[in-house]
């Protein structure tokens, strides 16, 4: 088997707070293969952004990786220093589009100057080479090449977001981490951005980790995905598997809660309650209080990611992973049809 591009193994990230250790990510494992688009879906506060920050050494001061490993192309990076991250990874290997990144452009510098500066810090490209590469990227993300010398304010919101993507891509990284890249944009702008992300995918040179709350964006643009709930990874698999055969209760319910424009009359599923704040060690399933299929065992022990139905590529962290979907379908025949058969 080839080495995965990015791999998280039993990763636990905790934040030190006034009330004790807050566990943002608990025992999370997933892999992203070379030139694969991978989606990480979950509600706000589920720890999905924390994972990306951990992978790039960008955790806040009070947060740290307390257990587990992150490997990039086989090399362990969880203990990298700031300097190592800068010299070896950031921008040229892994680039990051943070949340609300349209505002991350320096308003006083032309885009080309910003690119030149990034190139100077992270590579030995000359200024002209850097700008030339940025031009190519502008073309790919659908911005006019000659506008590389514009200031950020000369672009509209959607164009700024594409300029950020161009900047993220121009040093030809192998992995792009996009954290809610389009939440601040309107649907049409969002669609334009994903159109270009999809075109870049066709070249097969880059993998993407897409962090979002919007499961439909992941279904549309990713190959594989993980669903996360309150620090734990619930389920991982190809988007088709997750769509057709979700085995974790949270995935099943989340999918049903999502509006689908094709069926405006379908009743939306509801997930009761709120995700918990996990303090200290998480030795329970974080979904237990919201789960209609919970059994006492779920309170006592944290389920680990185990293959469902013997499928190694479809791990689910639920004690009842083999039976929940059938029970659910039996209860809601109609919903299962519209959801599963399309």
């Amino acid at each position: 088997m080839t080495t995965p591009l990015l791999e998280a193994e039993n990763l636990t990230v905790q934040y030190e707070t006034a009330n004790g250790m807050l566990t943002a990510v608990s025992d999370a494992s997933f892999t992203i293969n070379t030139s694969e688009y991978f989606g990480l879906v979950g509600e706000s506060g589920c720890g999905k952004s924390t994972i990306t920050k951990a992978a790039l050494g960008g955790l806040d001061d009070n947060g740290r990786i307390t257990a587990g490993k992150i490997r990039y192309k086989g090399e362990e990076i969880q203990d990298y220093t700031e300097k190592e991250f800068n010299e070896k990874l950031r921008w040229k290997e892994i680039s990051w589009i943070p949340q609300g990144s349209m505002n991350s452009l320096d308003p006083l510098q032309r885009i080309s100057e910003q690119a030149a500066m990034i190139a100077r810090v992270h590579t030995d490209l000359s200024k002209d080479e850097a700008v030339e590469r940025l031009r190519e990227m502008f073309d790919i993300v659908g911005l006019p090449k000659e506008r590389v010398t514009d200031y950020p304010h000369q672009f509209s919101g959607g164009m700024q977001q594409r300029a950020v993507i161009a900047l993220a891509l121009f040093l030809r990284p192998s992995l792009l981490i996009a954290d809610e890249p389009t939440t601040a944009l309107d649907v049409i702008m969002q669609d334009q951005v994903f159109k270009y992300l999809n075109e870049i995918k066709q070249d097969g040179e880059i993998g993407m980790l897409l962090i979002t709350h919007d499961i439909s964006l992941v279904f549309e643009s990713c190959d594989r995905m993980s669903v996360m709930h309150a620090g734990q990874i619930s389920e991982t698999g190809t988007v088709e598997t997750i769509y057709e055969e979700p085995h974790h209760p949270y995935t099943i319910l989340l999918k049903e809660a999502f509006p689908d424009l094709r069926y405006p009359d379908r009743e939306l599923g509801i997930i009761e309650g709120n995700p918990p704040q996990n303090m200290g060690e998480v030795d329970y399933c974080t979904f237990v209080d919201r789960c209609p299929w919970a059994v006492p065992e779920c309170q006592e022990q944290a389920p680990s990611l185990e293959p469902v139905g013997g499928d190694e590529d479809h791990p689910v962290s639920c004690f009842r992973r083999e039976e929940v979907l059938e029970e659910y379908r039996a209860e809601n025949e109609t919903v299962a049809q519209t959801g599963g058969d399309q």
Binding site: Y15, E16, T17, S44, G45, Q277
Partner: peptide, 10 residues
């Protein structure tokens, strides 16, 4: 408030 740390966890 003291919730800042919690917010950061997202």
């Amino acid at each position: 408030g003291n919730e800042e740390a919690f917010v950061q966890a997202g």
